[in-house]
Simulated assay, not measured.
Amino acid sequence: MVLDRFKRRTVLWEDQPRRKDLFLQKQVAMTLQSSSFLNRLLQPGTNLAWDVVTEPVHLEFPDSSSTFNIPRIVAIREAWEFLEMINSKSML
């Protein structure tokens, strides 16, 4: 069934060119994007009725995802230690 839909171009794979534009041009009904795609949806003049849902998950592990990632985690240990020090009782 998916192969038939793909041949009829009603299912598009991620690596196909202009995939994002097809959704914005109302030529496809659904798209799988990263959170940064929301910026394009929020642009003035984008006249789409849209909503956001989670990706499908396994029923036994509804709180787990195989694709979730945090692109950047920045830890500033020294700054945290400095904040702890200046807010400590010894600094009062």
Rank of each mutant, 00 (worst) to 15 (best):
M1N: 10
M1D: 11
V2L: 07
V2H: 07
L3A: 13
R5I: 00
R5E: 12
K7C: 07
K7E: 08
R9W: 02
R9I: 00
T10C: 02
V11W: 09
V11D: 06
V11F: 08
L12W: 06
L12H: 06
W13I: 06
W13R: 06
W13Y: 04
E14H: 08
D15S: 07
Q16F: 05
Q16T: 11
R18K: 09
R18W: 05
R18G: 04
K20G: 02
L24N: 06
L24F: 13
Q25W: 11
Q25D: 15
K26H: 10
K26P: 06
Q27P: 07
V28Y: 10
A29S: 14
A29E: 12
A29L: 11
M30S: 15
M30L: 14
M30D: 10
M30H: 13
M30N: 10
T31R: 08
T31V: 15
T31G: 12
T31W: 05
T31H: 05
T31C: 09
Q33G: 08
S34E: 14
S35N: 15
S36I: 08
S36T: 15
F37H: 14
L38N: 12
L38I: 15
R40G: 04
L41A: 11
L41T: 15
L42V: 15
Q43G: 09
Q43C: 12
Q43V: 15
G45R: 14
G45T: 10
G45N: 13
G45S: 12
T46C: 10
T46E: 07
L48Q: 07
L48K: 07
A49T: 15
A49P: 02
A49G: 05
A49S: 11
W50E: 02
W50C: 06
W50T: 13
D51V: 09
D51H: 05
D51Y: 08
V52M: 05
V52Y: 03
V52I: 13
V52K: 07
T54S: 07
T54C: 06
E55W: 03
V57S: 06
H58Q: 03
H58C: 00
H58A: 02
H58N: 02
E60Q: 03
E60L: 02
E60R: 02
E60W: 00
F61A: 04
P62N: 01
P62F: 00
D63H: 01
S64M: 01
S64I: 01
S65V: 01
T67G: 00
F68M: 02
N69L: 01
N69K: 00
N69W: 01
I70M: 06
I70V: 08
I70L: 04
P71K: 01
R72P: 01
R72F: 04
I73K: 09
I73R: 12
V74F: 07
V74A: 04
A75H: 09
A75C: 08
I76D: 12
I76S: 04
R77P: 06
E78D: 12
E78Q: 10
E78P: 05
E78W: 04
E78N: 05
A79E: 13
W80M: 04
W80N: 02
E81C: 07
E81V: 13
E81Q: 11
E81T: 13
E84P: 01
E84I: 12
M85E: 15
I86F: 08
I86H: 02
N87C: 12
N87V: 14
K89H: 09
K89W: 08
S90N: 09
L92C: 09
